[in-house]
Structure formats: structure tokens, C-alpha cells
Design a protein around this nucleic acid. Structure first.
Length: 260
DNA sequence: AGGTATGTTAATTG
DNA sequence: GCAATTAACATACC
């Protein structure tokens, strides 16, 4: 799940559950999810602190606490948050934050592709990891600039976190589908009008996906996302959805609707 | 058994 | 040296 709309949904979930609470206990159950910090140091940085505010940049969630270090949560392909009272440990719990009210917030990650780090600040983290502007923060001009001159597919550029942060495989497919643009289309062949159109579609798709809590079941039936497989017909023309490899990832698309 | 899956990154290729 | 592609990571499902 975790692309920009999913992470924004996790952020709101954390805000609605764990914000303003004091962390009574931190349990690192799988130290491989920690990036550049030991379990001992991570626990020491967070335990006893209060969760004060959250931020998001691209697919990264920042949790400001009453301490100086900022935990940074990244969800890989299978990460999520679960807040629950007197929660029994579950198999894919990797880090669990326990609060004074006996509830806990578990960071679950089945495939261990997600990571938790400590940053000095979101700005430092963004800089250190060469992240581009957040896909919902970037303006049209900068967006066009970010795609200009790239020989790769526009889809690959949309997913390149150093150009633009937040879009992954599913939402890049959705944006191209709604832009009626082929996933094979090279970025350097886009006209100014097409790039601007892509920008507007990107904003609409991400905004609507957040409103629907990034839940595929809630997305409009006219979107590709709920039919993103080769079994169902294109929701627009009832043609056959195809799958091809673009930049090493599977792109689902409608060859009839999305011109080459 | 082999291929696929919402992500990142190290290694490799051109 | 750079940009772009591929392999590897870990786990589950068809």
C-alpha cells in the first residue's frame, strides 16, 4: 500500500490515536528494520517522550517527539500501523510503542522492506536521502523541470524519489491511465501541454486517493486502481488491460485508451 | 516450481 | 562519471 496517499492515511491515523501520548515503552522486535541506529539507541531516544506532531514527505512519516531525534517511518511494500488496547504480540510486529493508557502502536512490516530511522529533522532527512520535492507540494513549473531531459519513461520519472517524492508503481499507473498516456512514453517526448496535464492529473489522483483513505475499494469505479489486473476489462472502454515491464516494474494499462 | 507483489539500494550496463 | 536497468532483500500467494 504505502505510496503517498497510504502514508498520509497512516499519518492521520497516528494523529487520531497516538498523538500527545507519552511513550511508556519501546520494543524493537526486529532490529533489521532499524536504519543506521541500534535498538538500544532508538529505544533510548523515544522512551519517555511524548508524540507531539507528525509530518510527511513523499513516502516517509516523521514523528516529532518531546526529544530532539525524530523517528522516521518508511513502510516498504507491506508496512502498516496498528493501534490497539492490550495488544497481543503479532508475528509481523517489528517495533511496538506502548503508551501509558495500555494501548500500543505497532509498526508491522511483513516483508521487512520498510525501515525506521532517526533524523535530526525532516529537512535533514530529505537532504541526506536526496529526496525530491513532495508530489503534493511541488509546483507545476518545478514538476515540468523534474521531468525535463530524462530519457527514461515518464512513469519511471514519476516513481523516481529523487525527482519527485511519493509516487510508486500503483499511482503512477493510475496517473498515466487518467492522462490517457502510455506507460512506454519517454519523458523527453512530452510537450509542455502534456507535462502540465500530467501534473494536474497527478494532483487530482493523489488528493482524491487521500480523501478515500487510500482504500482501493473506495476508489471510483472509473479508476484503473480497482481493476488493476489483466482479468477485468478497462473501466473506460471495456478493452483488455495489459501488463508490460517498464523500468523493471509491472505497468498495467489499457492499450486502447492510452495512446503510444 | 516459477512468477508476481504497493519499495529501496547496490551492482551492473551502456 | 552519469543515467538507466537489473538483482537482491523477505515473505506470501497463485
Amino acid at each position: 500500500m504505502p505510496e503517498l496517499p497510504d502514508v498520509e492515511t497512516f499519518r492521520k491515523y497516528l494523529d487520531a490515536t497516538a498523538l500527545h501520548q507519552h511513550v511508556a515503552d519501546v520494543a524493537v522486535r526486529e532490529k533489521r528494520v532499524l536504519k543506521d541506529v541500534s535498538a538500544r539507541d532508538f529505544e533510548r531516544a523515544v522512551k519517555g517522550r511524548q508524540f507531539e506532531a507528525t509530518d510527511r514527505h513523499g513516502k516517509y512519516l516523521f514523528v516529532h517527539t518531546s526529544g530532539s531525534a525524530v523517528p522516521v517511518l518508511h513502510f516498504g511494500m507491506t508496512g502498516l500501523l496498528a493501534y490497539e488496547k492490550e495488544r497481543e504480540p503479532q508475528r509481523y510486529d517489528r517495533v511496538v510503542f506502548g503508551f501509558e493508557n495500555r494501548y500500543s502502536l505497532a509498526y508491522q512490516c511483513r516483508r521487512l522492506l520498510g525501515r525506521i530511522a532517526l533524523a535530526k529533522s525532516p529537512a535533514h532527512f530529505v537532504q541526506d536521502n536526496n529526496l525530491g520535492p513532495d508530489a503534493l507540494q511541488i509546483g507545476r513549473e518545478k514538476f515540468v523541470e523534474a521531468l525535463r531531459g530524462a530519457q527514461a519513461a515518464a512513469k519511471s520519472c514519476l516513481m523516481d524519489q529523487e525527482r519527485l517524492a511519493g509516487i510508486g508503481n500503483i499511482y503512477s499507473d493510475e496517473i498515466l491511465f487518467q492522462s490517457r498516456m502510455s506507460p512506454k512514453r519517454k519523458a523527453d517526448t512530452l510537450s509542455a501541454a502534456e507535462a502540465a496535464q500530467l501534473y494536474r492529473t497527478m494532483r487530482r489522483v493523489l488528493t482524491m486517493a487521500i480523501e478515500r483513505r487510500a482504500d482501493p475499494a473506495r476508489m471510483p469505479a472509473s479508476w484503473l486502481l480497482p481493476h488493476r489486473n489483466t482479468e477485468e476489462p478497462c473501466p473506460r472502454c471495456r478493452g483488455t488491460i495489459a501488463r508490460i515491464k517498464v523500468g523493471g516494474r509491472s505497468a498495467y494499462w489499457c492499450p486502447r485508451c492510452q495512446a503510444e
